[in-house]
Amino acid sequence: MKRRSPSASDTESASSQGERSKPSTKKPSSFYMKQMRGGLSAAGYVKHETWVLPENRSLLKQMEKQLRQPILAGSFMLEDYMSAGNNWNIDRLFSALQALDEVASKEITPTLIQGSEQSIKLEMNEFGGLPIYIAVVGEQIIVDTVLVDLESIKDVQRFNDAVLRSREMFPLSSIGIETMPNGQTVYNMFGALSSESSLTNVVTEIKTLVDNVQRASEAFESFFN
């Protein structure tokens, strides 16, 4: 801990008394743990003993944090169900996403898109309405968005080279080329995870993709018209 430099009045007082001020006694870690438990109890939380395998301690800690949020309790039950080896389908995933805090606060607007293959569209309202699309394809959940269309690239060859060298820049996300139904060619940024993944992992994938899109837009800005 950084100590405060003594002021002139402090020095004068110490001199008149003929002794130095003793440093304050360092509190043991048990003091802070007691303070934390007291605060949680005052906030209305209850302690519940749980026995788990050693390798699951970190997972239990994550669950504990989620269960301190009342609005997440319903979606947490869905996660517990998914851990039993059941795969998400698009309808159950849409229902689970609708229970998120971010949806209730209008930060995200979810829409179920009907068609030959259903998908979910998430409008990220805090990011200008950035659309994120989610599809359940067999054993995978695909989360993607359009990064830029081909016609907006100044030098396609140099841009492709930069993209291929950017693997470590965007964790959990990749960039690919796709031809849309209208014939337009675009660069997509996407992530994929198992359809058995927990809701927490799906949300993490979505938020990571949004973050990576922002970073990619800045990193490749010089290539765009």
Rank of each mutant, 00 (worst) to 15 (best):
Q118I: 05
A99E: 15
D161K: 11
L164W: 09
I153E: 03
G128P: 08
E139L: 05
D91S: 11
R68K: 15
N89Q: 08
L130Q: 10
V148K: 04
E79V: 02
L67S: 04
L150H: 15
V146R: 08
M169R: 06
L130W: 05
E178A: 04
Q69F: 10
I153S: 02
Q140F: 06
Y133F: 15
L150D: 11
L150C: 05
D149W: 07
V137A: 07
Q118E: 15
P110S: 04
E168Y: 10
D155L: 06
K65S: 11
F159L: 01
W88V: 04
I113E: 09
D80A: 14
P171N: 09
S95K: 11
M124P: 08
D144M: 12
I90G: 06
Q157H: 08
M169Y: 06
E168I: 04
A73T: 08
F159I: 07
S95H: 06
N125M: 15
A135R: 14
D144W: 13
E102H: 07
D144V: 04
Y81H: 15
R167K: 14
V146D: 07
R68Q: 15
E178R: 11
N87F: 04
Q69N: 14
V137P: 00
Y81S: 13
T145Y: 09
I132W: 01
L67K: 11
I90R: 08
D80C: 05
I71M: 11
I71V: 12
R68G: 13
G115D: 05
Q66K: 13
I113K: 12
K154V: 10
N160A: 00
Q140V: 09
K65H: 08
F94L: 01
L130V: 05
S116F: 07
V148A: 07
M124K: 09
E107S: 14
Y133R: 10
I120N: 06
A96I: 08
P110Y: 01
L150T: 09
E107F: 10
W88S: 03
M82K: 14
I113N: 10
E107M: 14
T145I: 03
R158E: 14
G176M: 06
I113D: 02
E117L: 05
P131S: 14
L78W: 08
V136C: 02
S119E: 13
R165K: 15
L112F: 09
Q140W: 08
E102P: 02
M124T: 06
L122R: 06
A96R: 04
F159V: 03
T109A: 04
